[in-house]
């Protein structure tokens, strides 16, 4: 990652930590509303790869605040949500790993049990898939100069893939946590409840599956491959 993106992420972490207590005002005051505005128009001049990183951090620290609305236009909200979901899923995975390595039962950490290891591997695959979808979508959006009408295929694919990961990620995260993960005081629900909500926000599975499925039906069987390869690499 570039040095300027590293700095941006550090700023985002600090600002979002403050926002977690005070609401969205510090996010607006710190200028995140101009993250995607070009420098010659007085903005930060960031791209969607920057926004992807910032939104993933928002998905971890302030999933309940409207950070995506501050940063991106209405038409880009489904794309922004993929990044938020990737961040929240990464946090659910991190909490789960920490918990199973610490919590002991039958005289050893939960993470030593193969059943738990296999569950977490399944979860990790889903999380990596959504992170990859968010990152690939970001690259594509930047190539398209953030014109969502050109990136309809990738937005649909990425949001649908993220939606489909929600059930696996939230259920395994809660299962390996046991009762503590179901409490108000423990942090897991701070990412799992938003994930449950986001699956149905800016297009649930059926919504995007219909859009993408009808689009691909128009490409034809061979056409799908030709379109996919023409749209990247």
């Amino acid at each position: 990652m570039s040095a300027s993106r590293d700095m941006l992420c550090d700023t985002a972490r600090a600002v979002f930590a403050e926002a977690a207590a005070k609401g969205v005002a510090p996010v607006e005051e710190a200028g995140f509303g101009s993250l995607l505005v070009p420098e010659d128009q007085g903005g930060f001049g960031g791209d969607w790869c920057d926004a992807n990183e910032v939104l993933q951090i928002a998905g971890v620290i302030v999933p309940e605040l409207p950070v995506a609305e501050v940063i991106a236009s209405e038409a880009l909200q489904p794309a922004a949500m993929v990044s938020l979901m990737a961040g929240a899923m990464g946090q659910a995975l991190a909490l789960s790993i920490e918990h199973v390595n610490m919590r002991q039962q039958f005289g050893r950490p939960l993470g030593k049990f193969q059943a738990v290891q296999q569950s977490l591997a399944v979860m990790a695959c889903e999380v990596r898939a959504v992170e990859a979808a968010a990152a690939a979508l970001a690259v594509r959006l930047d190539v398209a100069n953030l014109d969502p009408s050109v990136v309809g295929f990738e937005i649909a694919a990425a949001k649908l893939r993220a939606n489909r990961a929600v059930g696996v990620v939230t259920s395994i995260a809660h299962q390996v946590h046991g009762a503590i993960g179901f409490t108000e005081e423990y942090d897991l629900h701070r990412v799992t409840i938003p994930l449950m909500r986001w699956r149905g926000t800016h297009g649930n599975d059926a919504h995007w599956a219909q859009i993408l499925g009808r689009q691909v039906a128009g490409f034809g069987g061979r056409g799908l491959w030709e379109v996919m390869t023409a749209r990247g690499a």
Binding site: L160, G213, R214
Partner: peptide, 28 residues
């Protein structure tokens, strides 16, 4: 590819949905 060709350009909603889901997974 055969599923997409068999479905034609105006597929039944259940088939469209399946094509959409499989495409999203393959793209990822």
């Amino acid at each position: 590819a055969a599923l997409i060709d068999a479905a034609g350009p105006d597929p039944d909603p259940a088939v469209a949905s399946l094509i959409g889901e499989l495409t999203a997974e393959m793209w990822t």
